[in-house]
Deep mutational scan, measured.
Amino acid sequence: MDLSALRVEEVQNVINAMQKILECPICLELIKEPVSTKCDHIFCKFCMLKLLNQKKGPSQCPLCKNDITKRSLQESTRFSQLVEELLKIICAFQLDTGLEYANSYNFAKKENNSPEHLKDEVSIIQSMGYRNRAKRLLQSEPENPSLQETSLSVQLSNLGTVRTLRTKQRIQPQKTSVYIELGSDSSEDTVNKATYCSVGDQELLQITPQGTRDEISLDSAKKAACEFSETDVTNTEHHQPSNNDLNTTEKRAAERHPEKYQGSSVSNLHVEPCGTNTHASSLQHENSSLLLTKDRMNVEKAEFCNKSKQPGLARSQHNRWAGSKETCNDRRTPSTEKKVDLNADPLCERKEWNKQKLPCSENPRDTEDVPWITLNSSIQKVNEWFSRSDELLGSDDSHDGESESNAKVADVLDVLNEVDEYSGSSEKIDLLASDPHEALICKSERVHSKSVESNIEDKIFGKTYRKKASLPNLSHVTENLIIGAFVTEPQIIQERPLTNKLKRKRRPTSGL
C-alpha cells in the first residue's frame, strides 16, 4: 500500500509539471487552440484576439514586449497534440486509482476541453461567416432531431417561395387574352364579311383624315369586289339584299356627314349593287376616265402658280386654248370622233363635250346612286353658264364675245376644280409618270385663266386698248415650251401688254 501511494504521488507531480508547461500565460489554463508568435511564445487563440482587439494597430507580447499583429500569429499543431495527450492521461489516472485529481477545478476545466467541445467553440470564435457556423452547429449536434426538422422546413419554405415567384413570372405573360375566330364554310359568310367591311370603312371615314380616306375606301372596294366574284351565280339572291343594306348604310352616312363622305364616293362606285361583274367593270372604266381629267386639272394648277410671274407667256397662250382643249377632250372620251376645226366657235365645242359626257352618266342604276348626284349638279351648273353665254354673245361685239367665252371657260374650270378634291395624291404621281406629254398640253388651259381676268378688268373701264407692237421672242419661247399647242394670231399678242400698262397708270386715278 505504501509503495502504491508513493507511485501515485509521483504520477500526480509529473502531471502537474506537464500542466504548468502547457498553461497559457494569460488565462493560466491549458492552452486552447495554441497560437505561436514571432517571438516563439505560445498563447491561446481566444486570449490573443481579445488582446489585439483592445487597441488599434499592433499590440505588445505580454512576455517579451514585442509587437504582435493578427497576421504574425501562427497555429502550432504540436502543442495541440500534447494537450490532447495530457487530458487522456489524466482521465486514465482517475480510472485506475479511483481518486480524484488534486486540482479539481483545473481538471474539471480540462475535462470540459474535450475535442468535441473544442470544435464547437472554434466554430463560434472564428469569423467564418453565418453559413459556415450553421453547418458546423448542425454537424456538432446530430442528436437534436427537432433542430434538423426546423432547419429543413425553413430551407424548403425558402425554396418554395423562390419557385413560386419564378412560376408566377412565367405564367403572367401567358394570361394575355387570345381571340380565335371559328369560321364556317357556308355561303352566307361572304355576304356577312362584305357588310362588315362596308360598315367598318364608314366608321374609318368618319375618323380618319382626308388623305387616308381614299386609300381605305379603295382597299375595301377591292375586297368586296373579290368576294362578289368568288361566289357562284346561284347565290345572287343572297347578294341582292346585302347590297341593298350597303346602299342604305352609305346613304345614311352621306346624310350625316356629306363633306366627309364625298371624298370616298368616287372610289367606292364599283361596290354599288350589281347584278353581274360586267356592270362593275364598266363603272370602273368610267371612274378611271374621270380621275384622269381631274388629275390633269391639278397639274394645271401647279403650272399656273409657276407661270404667274410671267405675264407675257400667259398672254401669248390665249389663242392656243381651243387647240389644246380639243386634244384633251379627244383623250378624255374613249369614243372615236373627228377633231373640230380651228376656226369653230369654242362654245360649240363645249356643248358637244357636254353631250358626250351626259350619255356616260345616263345609266338607270347610276342615277339612283348618291355619288353621281355631285356630277349631275356640276353638269347642270355648266349648262347654266353656257345659256348665259349665249345671251352675252348677242349683245357684245366679236372681240368682247371672245373674252366672255374665255371667262366662261374659266368658270367651267372652277367647277371642275371642285372635283379635284376627290382624287388622291398617289394617283397624281402615277398620271405624271405615265403621261407626261398630256400633262404639258393640259398646262396651257390653266395658264389661260390669267388672260381671262385681264379681259374682265378691261370691260370694267369700258374700253380695250391696242398697240401695234411685235414680240417675236415671246412667241418662239412659248412654242418651244408647249409641244401640242397651235400657232397664235400676232394681233392679239400685241394687244395684251398695252392693256396691263394702261391699267397700272389709271388705277390711282380711279381711286381718287
Rank of each mutant, 00 (worst) to 15 (best):
I68E: 01
C64G: 00
N144M: 04
R170W: 10
H257V: 04
I42L: 10
L165N: 13
Q139I: 09
S140G: 11
E149P: 09
E181T: 05
N106L: 11
Q155S: 09
N103T: 07
N66D: 11
P115S: 06
R252H: 01
I171G: 08
K110G: 07
K20V: 11
Y130V: 08
C47S: 01
L182C: 04
L138C: 13
K32T: 02
T77L: 09
F107P: 07
R170H: 09
S146W: 06
S157H: 04
P25R: 13
A102S: 06
K20S: 10
Q60T: 14
Q139R: 12
G183F: 05
K55S: 01
L73W: 10
Q19D: 15
P145S: 12
N66A: 11
S114R: 11
N158Q: 10
P34A: 11
P173E: 12
T176H: 03
K65A: 13
T69C: 15
A92T: 03
S104M: 01
D67T: 00
Q155T: 08
P173H: 03
L118S: 09
Q19L: 05
E75Y: 00
Q94D: 13
M128E: 02
L63P: 04
K88L: 14
Q19S: 13
L49T: 14
K110N: 10
N158A: 12
D120H: 04
T77M: 04
F93V: 04
L159F: 03
C44S: 00
G57W: 15
P25V: 01
K168Y: 12
L22H: 00
E85S: 12
Q172R: 07
V35N: 02
T150N: 14
G160Q: 04
L147E: 05
Q19A: 09
L49H: 15
P25C: 13
A92S: 12
T69K: 02
A134R: 11
Q139Y: 04
L51G: 07
Q81P: 02
Y105R: 10
Q148W: 01
C91V: 15
K135M: 15
L6R: 09
I26G: 02
L95I: 15
E121K: 08
Q19G: 08
E33I: 09
K70E: 05
K175P: 08
E100S: 12
I68R: 00
